[in-house]
């Protein structure tokens, strides 16, 4: 497996709105975060859900988002965050 992003890399979740099965929650799309770790390589659930094989396996990342990035009106401390597992095809490099 060749992972495009290293832990610590700044990434942004693609802005997309697929109508089918998808494991990238809507609330992080278009948002920027930092790769917390690489979880391994996994088959694509967007294909597995319809009988496809979801191959080749692709890297799955845990991405950390500051709460204020997800919810601009977040009232809690600046250190609060959400971490989400995101497959590589949903990520792009962020400045």
């Amino acid at each position: 497996m060749t992972a495009r992003f290293e832990p610590g890399a700044a990434v942004r979740v693609r802005l997309d709105d697929p109508k089918g099965h998808c494991r990238t929650p809507h609330y992080c799309r278009g948002r920027s975060g930092v790769v917390e770790r690489i979880c391994g390589a996994f088959r694509d659930p967007e294909e597995l859900a319809y009988g496809g094989e979801g191959l080749p396996k692709q890297p799955l990342y845990r991405v950390r988002f500051a709460q204020a990035e997800l919810w601009p009106d977040y009232a809690g401390p600046a250190g609060d965050c959400v971490e989400i597992e995101i497959y590589e095809h949903w990520l792009e490099a962020a400045g």
Binding site: L15, D17, H26, R29, G30, L70
Partner: peptide, 16 residues
């Protein structure tokens, strides 16, 4: 709330 998806999301995708 702006989530970059034009406000649409599936019913099960309920975070936030």
């Amino acid at each position: 709330m702006s989530d970059g998806t034009g406000g649409y999301h599936a019913h099960h995708d309920m975070g936030g």
